[in-house]
Design a protein around this nucleic acid. Sequence first.
DNA 1: ACGAGGTCCTGCGAGC
DNA 2: TGCTCGCAGGACCTCG
Length: 272
Amino acid sequence: MPELPEVETIARDLRAHLVGARILAAHVIKPDILRRIGRTGFERGLAGRRIEAVGRRAKHLVVALEGGRRLVVQPRMTGAFLVDARAVRDPYTAFELRLDTGKRLRYRDVRRLGAVFLLTPRQWADYDRAIGPEPLAPDFTAERFAEALGRGSLAVKKALMDQRRLAGVGNIYANEALWLAGIDPSRRVARLTRFELDRLHSAVLDVLARAIEGRGTTIRDYRTGTGEPGGFQGRLTVYGREREACLRCGRRIVLTQALDARATYFCPGCQH
DNA sequence: ACGAGGTCCTGCGAGC
DNA sequence: TGCTCGCAGGACCTCG
């Protein structure tokens, strides 16, 4: 669920609690969320380590540990992080880190589609390389954006959401950016003009930056790193507005499941 | 090589 | 009221 702005918000919130803290113990409650590592290896790998940094890559939270390994969490649809002062009984907690600050970092995930990794520097390099460029990096120009999307026969909405091409854009912000740019989501990416690609590049950067400012979009499950809903849901322009009047041209917004069985919202009046 | 489609999992709301 | 069905913000894997 969380896309780039939501994970960026979580990372910023957690940083204050986590950086410099030492992990006293790690406790895995739902081992099926672990990837490429077992429960024992995970718990032993974290115990005693100091947390050096908290960041984000694409939609994934990255916690850098003393010794060089990284704890990487992909929250996917329902993953959320909470900082608690004491132990909490909750059937959806997947793992918990007890810190020397007296706090606990808890990861809860109702659907358990999330994935958790503990990566060596080498594994991290491979992981990082498999993901496309960060849209908010200062050197991410319109040229790089056009290059990243590629020239395939893929629908532009699917290309935007393909993490190997571009990092961090999911269903909500793909819908929003395409509306902002006035582009039909089903257009083939190879058929977009230079001018349309420029508009889409600006739209992606603009919506992501504003969503971060708003601390992310809460439809149902997303919570910030301080446990509150985000503030951007009221500022969405097309997502979730089927049959409402388009804010630009007044035609009714249409919802289809056509692309990849994901909810696609667009305005047939002003997106071409 | 690339792209389409299925799969992982649980909860919720719409509709009957 | 109570049930069933379809859908949910993601990513990975397999197949063609």
